[in-house]
């Protein structure tokens, strides 16, 4: 027999977490902070920016959510969750202290080791700011380990912009070059938010060193092509253009099949893919 019958850890059994705080980021996106139900258990639960967790709601099921917090801020797990269906509807009914199940982390996450010392361009669209917040906080918490940090964020309108107060505060910071835009209706925020698609913010992205820059993109499916085309104009190396994707997932372990794209599983080989993968796999973006 070639393969040993070696069992692994029980990957499909969630551990229990409880909600310690929540607040609305937009009319339909809520921010949750959760910790293990038994505080001194699961202290080893670590993760990387760009990874995701499977959250389970009693009786309603399980779904993947990208982690919005940074591993540099240990102990608390944060998620920005949009109300779109059965599970998220139920998550929105949860109160502080309520419990939910968690498995993970899953996915490859951003290749932090490779990104050290590099200039980082982050492009977020809509809810894409949720997983990218993990990366953003990670870089800010380890600022000296990275080069320039450029962050472009586009949302539908100012109300739909995640973490708007945080971003407004960061506009004053010298730690990053931050530009915000909305598709329409920046009234009242003209000094902080531009109007137009996120691609239109690339006019601020100048003096890029193509050999020393890594771009990270996350947003709605339609956004990737346009944004990647902009990034390609800077002659970045293809493996240095990273996209963070969403797919249907039921397991997180490369078994259920739903997240497959060509020969890659989004839950193991992704959700962070390179532009090199994009060229090779038709269905990717």
């Amino acid at each position: 027999m070639k393969y040993e019958y070696k069992k692994g850890p029980e990957l499909y059994t969630p551990i229990m977490m409880r909600i310690i705080s929540k607040r609305d980021l937009t009319p339909d996106v809520r921010f949750f902070q959760i910790v293990p139900k038994e505080e001194f258990k699961h202290l080893d639960l670590d993760y990387k920016p760009g990874q995701f967790m499977m959250l389970s709601l009693f009786g309603s099921g399980e779904a993947p959510f990208s982690i919005s917090s940074s591993p540099t801020r240990k102990g608390i797990f944060e998620f920005a969750i949009r109300k779109t269906g059965k599970i998220t509807n139920k998550i929105f009914e949860l109160k502080d202290g309520d419990q939910l199940g968690l498995r993970g982390p899953f996915g490859n996450g951003f290749p932090i080791e490779k990104m050290l010392g590099k200039d980082i361009v982050i492009v977020a669209g809509g809810l894409g700011a949720a997983p990218l917040r993990s990366l953003l906080l990670y870089i800010l918490d380890n600022r000296e380990l990275f080069g320039r940090l450029i962050y472009l964020y586009g949302a539908k309108n100012p109300q739909e912009m995640l973490y708007r107060p945080d971003f407004f505060e960061m506009l004053e910071s010298d730690q990053l070059e931050l530009y915000l835009t909305v598709d329409k209706g920046n009234e009242g925020f003209e000094d902080k938010i531009e109007e137009g698609m996120v691609t239109h913010l690339f006019k601020y992205v100048n003096d890029i060193d193509p050999k020393n820059t890594i771009a990270c993109v996350c947003g709605p499916p339609v956004m990737y092509k346009f944004v990647v085309n902009e990034i390609l104009k800077y002659n970045l190396e293809k493996h240095n253009i990273l996209v963070n994707l969403e797919r249907r997932m039921k397991c997180g372990t490369g078994k259920c099949g739903h997240c497959i794209i060509d020969y890659r599983y989004t839950c193991i080989d992704g959700p962070v893919f390179t532009y090199w993968d994009v060229i090779h796999m038709r269905e990717l973006i």
């Binding site: 019958y5 070696k6 069992k7 692994g8 990957l11 499909y12 372990t253 490369g254 078994k255 193991i268």
Partner: peptide
């Protein structure tokens, strides 16, 4: 079922 992660239900 054993690559990347082992699926215990299978095993």
């Amino acid at each position: 079922y054993t690559t990347d992660f082992v699926d215990n239900y299978y095993m």
